[in-house]
Nucleic acid binder design. Structure first.
Lengths: 117, 117
DNA sequence: TCCACCATTCGACGTACGTCAAGTGATTCC
DNA sequence: GGAATCACTTGACGTACGTCGAATGGTGGA
């Protein structure tokens, strides 16, 4: 039977030992995999690159949606994935919500998977 | 309609500009996402850490399967994903196939997603 | 207050994914 | 050649995922 992936809080930057420092426990592997999964979609990679281009002000959903040629509902869904993984943060200003990248979370993820970093 | 992800060759290390260096084109985003997806599973993260613990000799399927408590068929499937993403390489020695991690591919992926590396 | 706009959630759809049992290859040893 | 062992492929199953239209929430301006 297919194993339903357990849920866990991924809002803080991942904090386990690097992949290369020994055999990883199942729950650490889950923590890493959930964050990778949040980024493992071409649209979300593109969204992330757009946010990284405006790290100060952020970008709102209504500007992101036409840029990736998807409905706002779909973009909102993708942003939710990234938000729950702690990779972006959204703050409301008036009617708009501006999303900014969380470089620390991205860096922490990277330090776990890179054998030489 | 759901977008069927286009296929592409991911056997070589990813070679595009970092995420943070500007808005990423759709095909570059796909190249990154496909490699991330290959690693975005707790079992595959665990397998990768086991391989990184034996980078010289490699580990064979029959040793990996009991370690993650899955059938050899399933482990073989996961290893195929990692192999097609260029993250591991398998070489046959007798009846066994020994898998070794491809640190360069892992490092290249990391350099693309890390804003500070 | 009411309307317009942006964002999110909900319901539904087709596809992709993880898993296993069973079958097929490949290699070694007798 | 035959048997044993390891690896991979195939077919099937349930679940999770990406997408959209429509409905719901918030916010600000007439």
């Amino acid at each position: 039977m297919p194993k339903p992936l357990p849920a866990m809080d991924t809002s803080a930057p991942v904090g386990c030992a690097p992949l290369a420092s020994g055999v990883m426990a199942a729950d650490d592997a889950l923590a890493v995999a959930l964050r990778l999964k949040a980024l493992a979609d071409p649209i979300r990679v593109q969204l992330m690159s757009m946010l990284l281009a405006e790290p100060e002000d952020g970008v709102c959903t209504c500007d992101l949606a036409p840029a990736v040629e998807l409905s706002e509902a779909t973009v909102s869904h993708h942003l939710k994935q990234l938000r729950e993984a702690g990779l972006v943060e959204g703050t409301r200003k008036g009617t708009n919500v501006y999303y900014r990248p969380q470089a620390e979370a991205l860096g922490a993820l990277c330090r776990v998977i890179d054998p030489s970093c």
